[in-house]
């Protein structure tokens, strides 16, 4: 019970902080919008001819890069002195879980906005929109749980963005494979029961990542 309260307080703190310096959020939104526009210009007049695997892959790559950039700063905001202050106040478990929840919300927002804008600009061949959105939601949660932990590691190692990308990409690939496969099913409007296997695996991977983050973060936080 105590942990839950702590998490709730920490999430509120994150949201308030984010709201105070809105440029970060706006920056991420602008990032996703301009990436989509670049893709549109890249395909030029042919964007209508974009076939569905390309559409799908492009969408997830845009989301992946946005997520990496959005989460990379999640431990960078605080100054060292303030970090020390948190260290005395909150438990490491509370901190990692609150960061993961907060990042999931952030990525969910970015993903939904991105999906909307992407479908407006590049067309929307998705047949089963509900499944696709659920999948996007699962993706946001999965990305945030993996990337939050990796960003914690990268921050300790001097927080350069190359390191963040190098460390997170291989770890996130299994998730990405499953996400792309499910969203392909949704695009083709296949029966939902076909995707259950993959969704369960995805949830299992999420659970593993969450559990491992929960166990390992205290060691990271101590140093």
């Amino acid at each position: 019970m105590h942990l839950l309260q702590e998490i709730a307080v920490l999430i509120r703190k994150e949201i308030v902080l984010e709201w105070r310096q809105r440029y970060a959020l706006n920056g991420m939104l602008l990032y996703i919008v301009s990436t989509v526009l670049i893709c549109y210009f890249g395909f030029g007049q042919n964007s209508a001819a974009l076939n569905s695997p390309t559409w799908n892959t492009l969408f997830w790559i845009i989301l992946l890069f946005t997520a990496v950039n959005a989460v990379a700063k999640s431990f960078g905001q605080e100054r060292a002195a303030r970090l020390l202050y948190y260290y005395t106040l909150a438990s490491p478990q509370g901190i990692i879980l609150s960061k993961i929840v907060y990042n999931s919300l952030l990525l969910l927002l970015l993903a939904v906005v991105g999906y909307g804008f992407y479908s407006v600009i590049l067309g929307n061949p998705v047949e089963d929109n509900l499944l696709f959105l659920v999948n996007v939601g699962l993706g946001a949660v999965g990305f945030s749980s993996t990337l939050t932990m990796v960003s914690g590691i990268a921050t300790k190692a001097g927080n350069n963005s190359v390191l963040m990308a190098v460390l997170s990409f291989p770890v996130i690939i299994p998730m990405l494979i499953l996400l792309i496969r499910i969203s392909k099913n949704a695009m083709d409007g296949l029966d939902r029961s076909i995707s259950y296997d993959e969704m369960i695996t995805l949830l299992a991977i999420n659970a593993i990542v969450l559990a491992v983050s929960y166990i390992l973060f205290p060691y990271l936080w101590k140093s």
Partner: peptide, 21 residues
């Protein structure tokens, strides 16, 4: 310490990739 953390974390995500997928 940090590389040990990454090692465990990455291996935990590698396992489903190798045996479940």
């Amino acid at each position: 310490r940090i590389s040990a953390i990454y090692n465990i974390f990455a291996f935990a995500t590698l396992v489903p990739l190798l045996f479940i997928l």
